Amino acid sequence: MAIGNHELYIYANTYDMYPNFVPKLGECYLSSNINITVYDKNNNSVSVPVGSRYRMFKTLKGRQVMALG
C-alpha cells in the first residue's frame, strides 16, 4: 500500500495516518519520497518518512523483488 495525494493536502490528515494507520501495516506501507514533520521527545521538529522507503520480498517462484512507494 502506498500514500496517495489526498492524504497530503491537509497536514492533519497526513499526521493522523502517521501514528494511527501506518504502524498497523508496518513495512507494507510505502512512501519512498514523502516525509512528515513531527516533534520528538525534546519538542524539536524532525522530518521523518511517513512509511517505509522500500520493501524487499521473494515471489512464490523465488524471484527477489524491491518495491518502492
Rank of each mutant, 00 (worst) to 15 (best):
M1H: 01
I3L: 10
G4V: 00
G4Q: 11
N5F: 02
N5H: 12
H6E: 15
H6F: 06
H6C: 09
E7R: 03
E7W: 09
L8E: 08
L8Y: 02
L8Q: 12
L8S: 05
I10Q: 07
I10G: 04
Y15T: 08
Y15P: 02
M17F: 12
M17R: 05
Y18W: 15
P19Y: 08
P19W: 10
F21S: 09
F21C: 01
K24S: 09
K24E: 09
L25A: 06
G26T: 01
E27C: 09
C28E: 15
C28K: 07
L30E: 03
S32V: 00
N33A: 11
N33P: 05
N33E: 08
I34D: 13
V38N: 04
V38H: 01
V38D: 03
Y39C: 10
Y39G: 05
Y39V: 06
K41A: 14
N42F: 10
N43K: 14
V46S: 05
V46A: 13
V46R: 13
R53D: 11
R55C: 03
R55S: 03
M56R: 14
M56K: 07
M56A: 01
F57W: 09
F57L: 11
F57G: 14
K58T: 12
K58N: 14
K58F: 15
T59R: 09
L60S: 14
K61I: 09
G62S: 14
G62V: 06
G62Y: 07
R63G: 05
R63L: 12
Q64F: 15
V65H: 00
V65N: 03
A67H: 13
A67S: 14
L68A: 00
G69H: 05
G69S: 11
G69I: 12
